[in-house]
């Protein structure tokens, strides 16, 4: 479930760092209370334990188990009588790294995440800036902008699929009539199409571009929400000073506003990248992983359900998580110190 894609997880990363350790309990100031403090610690553990239990049992242990599964030759058929620690093997990983499909899927995943993230943040930034100044119905417009993000994924993908359908989709209907397309474009089932601009012929990955566009549409509200909040905190006096000094609108954006948004954009980029990299629903529902859009998470799902290859699925999922961890590690190592300074 993409809790990640839910509204709430977002501030977790930036705020947790600064938040913990600040608050004080009723008992702490009393100073003398060794027993009071001990009682508090006991109460704290008791109150948090249901959470810890369910997260450990349903999240942490399964992750550890995935590691075990990835090293076993386990299929859905012989699941019933397989032991937890049977026959460890590296065959799954050999299969994963040896298959050309995996590398193609990895490239697709990276392209999808990078361009999807960039497009979502770009559109979100434009939207936040456009809605910065007050006007009538701004509240309503803002709320409307958030709809793609909160609406059920199944419903919106179905709407897009129907809109883009080559048979009776509204996009192709108007495209062939008004934009002069020679024939309907199968946006979601065509791997690539030849496009000629000014005499240049080149192939365009149609389906992949379409799912990236969908990703931008679906998740720009998230960037929009956070950039809007950040914009409200930008002190107006700086821009006024720049105006007095003769800076134009674009200069004020470039040299005054944008630098202040940069840390927020960096955090957004990390979060959106993680969620897009992991995302399954969008592509599975739009294309089912066909036409050159099979990202790794969809491939994990197909291995699991279509082929019943539990070991292979686990190995791929593990590789996916490892790549993500490496990328995040690189990011934190390269960029995080600079962020702290700003």
């Amino acid at each position: 479930m993409s809790v990640g894609a839910g509204l709430g997880a977002a501030p977790a990363a930036p705020a947790r760092r600064s938040g913990s350790g600040g608050s004080s309990g009723p008992g702490r100031q009393s100073g003398s209370g060794r027993t009071l403090r001990r009682a508090e610690a006991r109460a704290g553990l008791a109150l948090i334990s249901p959470t810890v239990v369910i997260v450990v049992v349903m999240v942490v242990l399964p992750i550890i188990w995935t590691v075990l599964l990835a090293f076993q030759r386990l299929r859905l058929l012989n699941l019933r009588n397989a032991g937890l620690f049977d026959n460890f093997t590296l065959a799954n990983f050999a299969n994963v790294f040896g298959s050309s499909a995996f590398w193609a899927n990895l490239a697709t995943t990276l392209a999808y995440s990078v361009f999807g993230t960039a497009a979502a943040i770009g559109v979100g930034l434009v939207a936040a800036l456009a809605l910065r100044r007050r006007f009538r119905f701004r509240g309503l417009v803002r709320a409307a902008m958030l709809l793609p993000y909160v609406a059920p994924i199944v419903a919106v993908t179905f709407a897009w699929k129907t809109m883009l359908s080559p048979q009776f989709g509204v996009a192709n209907h108007w495209g062939t009539r008004l934009l002069g397309w020679d024939e309907p474009i199968a946006f979601l089932s065509q791997r690539s199409s030849e496009v000629s601009i000014l005499g240049w012929q080149f192939g365009v990955p149609t389906a992949l571009l379409t799912v990236i566009a969908f990703e931008a549409w679906r998740s720009f509200p998230f960037a929009f929400l956070f950039l809007t909040a950040r914009l409200q905190a930008v002190p107006i006096t700086l821009e006024e000073a720049a105006t007095v000094d003769g800076a134009t609108l674009s200069q004020r954006f470039r040299y005054v506003v944008f630098p202040q948004l940069l840390p927020t954009i960096a955090v957004l980029a990390v979060l959106r990248f993680i969620w897009t990299f992991n995302s399954f629903d969008d592509i599975y529902l739009l294309t089912g992983g066909g036409a050159g859009t099979e990202v790794i998470s969809v491939s994990v799902f197909n291995s699991l359900t279509a082929r019943g290859d539990i070991g292979g699925a686990a190995a791929q999922a593990l590789v996916l998580a490892a790549i993500l961890a490496v990328l995040i590690g690189l990011y934190l190592w390269r960029l995080a110190p600079r962020e702290e300074q700003s």
Partner: peptide
């Protein structure tokens, strides 16, 4: 409340979000 492991709990929760859902799916 001040209790042992309060910070570790936060880290644990954060880690949940870094792992792909599909990893848990299997």
């Amino acid at each position: 409340l001040q209790f042992f492991g309060r910070r570790q709990v936060s880290v644990l929760f954060l880690a949940v979000y870094l792992f792909p859902n599909i990893l848990l799916a299997v």
